[in-house]
Amino acid sequence: MIGGNDGRNRALRVDSLLRLLFCWLARLTHRLRGGILVVPVLPPVFGLDIHLAIGASIVSIIATSSGAAAAYVRDHLTNVRAAILLELATSTGAVLGALLAPFLPSRALYFLFAGFLLLSLGPMARRLGEKVPSQVRPDWFARRLHLGGAYPDRALGRVVTYEVTRVPVGFAMMFIVGLASALLGLGAGALKVLAMDWGMRMPMKVSTATSNFMIGVTAAAGAGVYFWRGDVVPIIATPVMLGVLAGTLVGAQLLLRLTNRRVRQLFIPTLLIIAVQMLLRGIAVW
């Protein structure tokens, strides 16, 4: 079955190529971790049903996280025990969120999305100054499950040992984050960090590394539901996946040269613009 060369058909192919290019660029320039830019950008620019955009976005999250994980696994920062424990909360939340998604109208999703983005701005801005929390008393769960750990801090030039506390608080927060993540197609890295660093008083570096470790698994939990439901449309999701993967492979070199601070300075205004745009769409102004 050779596809005809009529214009309608060509537009479709050009569109998918453009999408690949766009995702590659987005991943490259914005350190696109989760689907944070894919979801907002797909519906307005390409005018797609937000449910399908979320399906594509979840795929991009897995691509980002699995693509980057190969490098991060051996950093000795990730707290694997805490990660797997909290994945219990995020993956259950994610499956529920994915099941819930079809029952929510698009407009509600736009609103939730805007709120969620604004919510994650707080921890990102706070992260500009980072310190290791001291005098943390481990709670019963942390002692029982041996959640404390140690990591080599290059900036401080010593090994930092830390304790973990308020595990139920972190666990509950992670459940909500997992739910929202699958509902909206976001990696929700910033909020995962918040649950660990504010909720469980873990050091920022450990929280960030552990959050990266968890993002892929959380996204995969929701992705299966989207996949079989048919909300991961191949011609949309494949260019997104290929673009993101190419961006991860090519972008990794570039990122090493940018400082964290600079990346965040670029990123926070971008998120603000997107949040406002989604809000406007939610109230149907634009």
Partner: peptide
């Protein structure tokens, strides 16, 4: 896409 979802 399915292979990608299976990696985690």
């Amino acid at each position: 896409i399915l292979v990608l979802i299976l990696t985690p």
